[in-house]
Amino acid sequence: MSALKWGQGKGKGAAGPALFGLPLSFDHFVLPRLLRRPVRILARLGEGEFQAPRFSAAILSAVLVASSSAYGAYLGGEIDGVVQGITARTGFAVDQVKVVGNRQTSEIDILDRLELDGWTSLIGFNAEAARERISGLPWIEVAAVRKVYPHTLEVRVEEREAFALWQQGDELSVIEKDGAVIAPFSGGSQTQLPLLVGSGAPAKAPDFLVKVEKYPELAARVKGYIRIGDRRWDMRLDNGVTVKLPEDGEDQAIAALVKMDKDDGLLSRDIAAVDMRLSDRVVVQLSPEAATQRQAALNEKPKGLKRKPETKI
């Protein structure tokens, strides 16, 4: 302590410590603990008493070379690759990926968008850029990519909600409730979605399907909703019967159809179509087989009764 309390324990003529010939003595002044050793070394260096550690020149040369290389990589735009290479080989290489929330999107598609190469460092990995790439997949609505140190990536996604299939010509697409196309039809569970056919169908379908779904037994039998001239609907049933609804009063027409089917089994008969476009009548079109049988029955001549002989009085 006495060596650091400059000005104590020395006569007035005693010389205090000096650094490179400059006196550093101050009466009753004590250096902070962190500065004591560096100051001693500098003082010894100024007096010629300090000897550098062995290999110090080699160490300083290595530091100089490494610094120069790092600066050159920075100027050449390769610093990210250097960081990736060093950190990946020191225990931070991504070796596990967790994907949560995907149903329609395959994990392979998500992994492709992460662009991992087997030696990708978690430290240098750009999670935001990966999130943007994953968000570009057709079914993805929201994506989040999180680093879990030392070597795990966690991907969470929320997918868009499928509402129906939309057929335009030969194209069949999966759409959202607002009519936005999600992706081409690919089979699987998508076959359970309602089928919409025709121009303008997606815009009108949400309200119309609510009306049909009030009658679950009828809704379960509908295989396709066909928009005619963007004015009205036809419904194609599972047995091939087509129900032609009017432009106005869809609710009343559907209710009347359900009642006729319940009372008379209309939709289970050998018919091809039920035309409800006229407000004052329902027209039923027979199937080709039923029409042939009916025509044969009409053409058959009825057997005449034998005329009784006249009786004269």
Rank of each mutant, 00 (worst) to 15 (best):
S2N: 12
Q8C: 08
F26N: 12
F26D: 12
F26C: 14
D27S: 10
R37I: 10
R40Q: 14
R44G: 15
G48Q: 09
A52D: 00
P53E: 06
P53K: 09
S56P: 04
S56M: 11
I59N: 12
L60G: 14
S61L: 12
S61H: 03
V63L: 15
L64V: 10
S67A: 15
S69Q: 11
A70L: 14
E78V: 06
A93K: 06
V100F: 06
I110Q: 11
I110H: 10
I110E: 08
R113A: 12
R113H: 05
L114K: 09
D117K: 12
T120S: 15
I123Q: 05
F125L: 04
I140P: 01
A143Q: 00
K147I: 12
V148A: 15
H151Y: 13
V157G: 01
V157A: 04
E161P: 09
A162S: 11
A164V: 02
L165E: 03
W166T: 01
V174D: 04
G179D: 00
A180H: 15
A180Y: 10
I182P: 02
A183F: 05
A183Y: 04
P184Q: 06
F185R: 00
S189C: 05
S189M: 09
V197A: 04
G198K: 00
G200D: 06
P202V: 07
A203L: 04
K204Q: 15
A205P: 06
P206M: 07
D207E: 15
L209I: 07
L218T: 04
R221M: 08
V222E: 05
V222C: 06
R227M: 08
G229N: 13
D238W: 07
K244V: 06
E250G: 06
D251S: 14
I254F: 00
M260T: 00
K262G: 13
G265C: 04
R269D: 05
L278D: 13
D280E: 07
R281D: 00
R281H: 05
R281W: 01
V282K: 01
Q285L: 10
T292L: 13
Q293R: 14
Q295G: 09
N299P: 08
R307G: 11
E310A: 14
T311M: 15
